[in-house]
């Protein structure tokens, strides 16, 4: 059951970029909280730049978080881009299209990458999977991770979340012939 969004979502000026920079910082951080809460309660890993949830495989057009029909307000795209870029800077979102400044879709991180990394490490430890090669598919989509918060995480994002473990020399990533990460071994 998705949680209802907090009252500020119905506050009409939230949809207009505020000219006072201190207030605007507060406004953007309100938007970031809304997006994280929305994504988490819908179990959505990925959202389009327009603010609708993207699920793998289906191209269904869904309502956007930035459009509020109840009060007839919507956030202009320019301001939406400002919100996304702040989110990326603060590590609360990652553009799926790496290298580009404005990506068409974003991964939403309601936990930080480091926090996902340590959760994944916990899984490796408690499932007894240390010292074995586990495919990224198995890790994020396999039956053995059902019930863990990272279950269902898109594979490219999972690979990103494993990077902190590599830096700590706890994990080694195995790439396929195109350089795409396919498996991981945690020690």
């Amino acid at each position: 059951m998705p949680m209802p969004l907090p009252p500020i979502y119905s506050f009409p000026p939230l949809y207009t970029r505020q000219p006072n920079s201190i207030i605007r910082r507060q406004q953007i951080s309100s938007w970031m909280d809304l997006i994280l809460q929305y994504a988490k309660s819908h179990n959505a890993w990925c959202m389009s730049a327009e603010g609708s949830i993207v699920t793998e495989g289906s191209e269904s057009v869904q309502e956007s978080i930035f459009v509020n029909n109840e009060i007839e307000r919507s956030v202009p795209q320019v301001f939406i881009n400002e919100i996304w870029s702040t989110m990326c800077q603060e590590g609360k979102a990652i553009g799926t299209d790496k290298g580009k400044k404005e990506s068409p879709t974003y991964y939403i991180l309601w936990r930080t990458v480091d926090s996902w990394a340590s959760l994944i490490l916990q899984w490796f430890e408690s499932a007894g999977k240390l010292q074995q090669v586990v495919t990224i598919y198995e890790l994020s989509q396999g039956d053995e991770s059902i019930g863990w918060e990272f279950h269902g995480m898109p594979e490219p994002l999972t690979a990103d979340c494993l990077k902190p473990l590599c830096h700590r020399h706890r994990a080694t990533i195995v790439n396929d012939e195109y350089g795409k990460p396919v498996a991981v071994k945690v020690v």
């Binding site: 500020i8 000026p13 949809y15 207009t16 505020q18 006072n20 007839e72």
Partner: peptide, 25 residues
């Protein structure tokens, strides 16, 4: 608006509205 006492809303029908943030709740 510059002092942060009011928030501006430019999407109302006829003219800009100036909202008191204590109405959020």
């Amino acid at each position: 608006v510059a002092n942060g006492l009011l928030w501006i809303d430019e999407q109302a029908d006829a003219e800009a509205l100036y909202w008191d943030p204590s109405w959020i709740n």
